[in-house]
Design a binder for these strands. Sequence first.
DNA 1: TCTGAAAGCCAGAGTCC
DNA 2: GGACTCTGGCTTTCAGA
Lengths: 157, 157
Amino acid sequence: MDEIDRKIVIAVQQDGAAGLADLAKVSGLSVSATAERLKRLEERGVVRGWHAELDPAEVGCPLLAFLRVAIRPGKEDIAFRRLIRKLETVLECHQLTGEWSYLVKLRLPDIAALETLMAEEIRPLAGMERISVEIAMATVKETALLPVIRAPEEEEA
Amino acid sequence: MDEIDRKIVIAVQQDGAAGLADLAKVSGLSVSATAERLKRLEERGVVRGWHAELDPAEVGCPLLAFLRVAIRPGKEDIAFRRLIRKLETVLECHQLTGEWSYLVKLRLPDIAALETLMAEEIRPLAGMERISVEIAMATVKETALLPVIRAPEEEEA
DNA sequence: TCTGAAAGCCAGAGTCC
DNA sequence: GGACTCTGGCTTTCAGA
């Protein structure tokens, strides 16, 4: 992960439709060398995949909501995680420090869908101690573009 | 946005590297018809862009943190939003219902970087009423893949 | 690990059905 | 919308350094 890899990775993250010819200009190397580096970055898992970014509203999920969940550890916790992974309206679920167990990010068509999800899937779960629902009224920023940090010591092969 | 568009959109979201030949198989149409539909979906903004997905840890941002911010409305609020949009370690910022103004999602190299950010950028802001910092200890799920909902009535051209 | 060239593939435009 | 064609540009691969 040297400076050239970093340039390539930043470029493909911003524009995944860029061809090798474009990337070669960015990296300063030849097309074939750029292609080899990109292939290695994919093999090493630095580049995980390629995706089209969709407009949430256009795709029928204008509603953004967050759940805070406190759940008893153990068997109930396992069941909760299994459910979370199954539900495609759940985009993210992280276990956080603090008194709440989980933060859950949801994308849904409308409030009715949210209420249905809560009533039929979430609330019936055993071991739920507290649930809080918050709705996004506005989004100041929402990007999947990661900052690519230059780590001084990790100039590996 | 009919059933065929939906198939195309789901396919390119999952695999943005798929060629038109693959997409044609998915859609059931010819290659040229599939290409036209995809082009229209991009023009209409349903497909917003193309990106490579990176591994956060590999890119030097293993630490995931969330901020809760309560800020006085008005001039201070504007300044806060401007800062948020500028910082590339801030991936998301949403205004939520409830007593906290904002939920902020951060990706950072380590705790030291988080503390630096808080001390130098966030806390000095005027009008800050409350700030809470939470760190992700584990991630159960994290995807950018939106659910593509079939909206019964919006069968437009 | 890079360069450069050669070979093969795919997307894009045009036409007709 | 489908099928066909052609062309340009791009990706891929390989020899050579």
